[in-house]
């Protein structure tokens, strides 16, 4: 088996998931300069709701093909996540928009704890296996193993990213979002309803997060109430690596982080792969303090 190619494939799969989640962090950050600590939990809830929904359908004896079951699960999970994202912003962040910078960070941490504990109360402490509804056939790809699922994850992630870029660059909503992130006050004066834009940003980010959550669960065959913190942390790292606030940066950072991790796991040591990822991050930031694609912010003295 070709280790190099195999690790590239694994890295791309994980990396595109990171990228999807990183987009959620970076969109919120771009508009409000807030680390949405609870985003990882949205990802987890997306995965949990989907699994529950699929199990319910199967339990009810509805025998649909795997991908359709998955779609049904997603159709349930996406609105739930969007609603949650919307509610979190309204309740925990909006009242603090003029507060000291760290106050919303603390409420974000609080929300993250609440969601995690609530998930444990609902779904218990144990791992939830991902229902075996997807084909598990392994294809040979120039000596490396690849599954349909892996291909589907990468393709879907790319489609979603393409959709998001289209939305941001080409639609009226996207223009309003860009204007708001440049300068909320001016955008407000130009007739953009900033509150609506922020809500939309949270909902779009949450929808992407929910789908990423399902991808994580399908890829690792399981989900867990605690899964949000680690995956959220990774994705946030990716967003910073690429230059936080920058959409393309989130994608580049995510994929790069996925590749770095899988290369390190393949060639060096899997226990130190996170160490390696953080060392790369620190190294990049030492030379480019605002990330790979971040704007260089020169201080106006």
């Amino acid at each position: 088996m070709d280790i190099f190619l195999q690790q590239i494939i694994n890295g791309l799969v994980v990396g595109s998931i990171y990228a999807l989640i990183a987009l959620g962090y970076t969109m919120v950050y771009g508009i409000m300069q807030l680390i949405n600590f609870a985003h990882g939990e949205i990802v987890m809830i997306g995965a949990m709701v989907t699994i529950t929904c699929i199990n319910l359908l199967i339990g009810a004896g509805i025998n649909l093909p795997g991908p359709l079951l998955l779609l049904a699960g997603l159709l349930m999970a996406i609105p739930v996540s969007m609603l949650l994202g919307f509610a979190i912003e309204r309740i925990a962040y909006r009242p603090l928009r003029r507060a000291p910078r760290l106050a919303p960070l603390i409420t974000a941490i609080g929300v993250s704890i609440v969601l995690q504990q609530a998930a444990m109360l609902i779904w218990g402490r144990n791992y939830r296996p991902f229902p075996a509804i997807l084909p598990t056939e392994v294809h040979d790809f120039f000596g490396a193993a690849i599954t349909d699922l892996q291909v589907a994850i990468v393709v879907l992630a790319l489609l979603l990213m393409g959709g998001l870029f289209f939305l941001i660059e080409r639609t009226k909503l996207g223009r309003a979002m860009r204007a708001t992130s440049q300068n909320p006050e001016v955008a407000g004066l130009m007739g953009v309803n900033i509150n609506t834009i922020i809500s939309m940003t949270f909902m779009i980010g949450s929808a992407l997060g929910a789908m990423a959550g399902v991808m994580v669960a399908a890829n690792y065959d399981q989900a867990h109430a605690y899964m949000g913190s680690l995956i959220g942390l990774k994705a946030f790292t990716a967003a910073v690596l690429g230059g936080i606030g920058n959409l393309a940066g989130a994608v580049v950072g995510g994929i790069l982080l996925g590749l770095i991790e899988s290369m390190c796991a393949g060639y060096l040591s899997s226990s130190y792969k996170d160490v390696f990822a953080f060392v790369v991050l620190i190294g990049v930031l030492v030379f480019r303090p605002s990330g790979l694609l971040g704007e260089r912010v020169a201080d106006r003295a």
Binding site: Y29, Q33, I35, R101, L233, F236, T237, V240, I244, S269, S271, Y272, D274, V275, A277, F278, V279, L281, I282, L285, V286, P289, S290, G291, V297
Partner: peptide, 28 residues
């Protein structure tokens, strides 16, 4: 030392990474 030039949230993530590096090293 390596983080002196970083601002705000960039510093936050690097310090976070540093904490994790220490913990993972202790673990391994």
């Amino acid at each position: 030392t390596p983080t002196l030039k970083l601002r705000g949230d960039y510093l936050a993530i690097v310090t976070l990474g540093f904490g994790e590096i220490i913990r993972i090293c202790l673990n391994n």
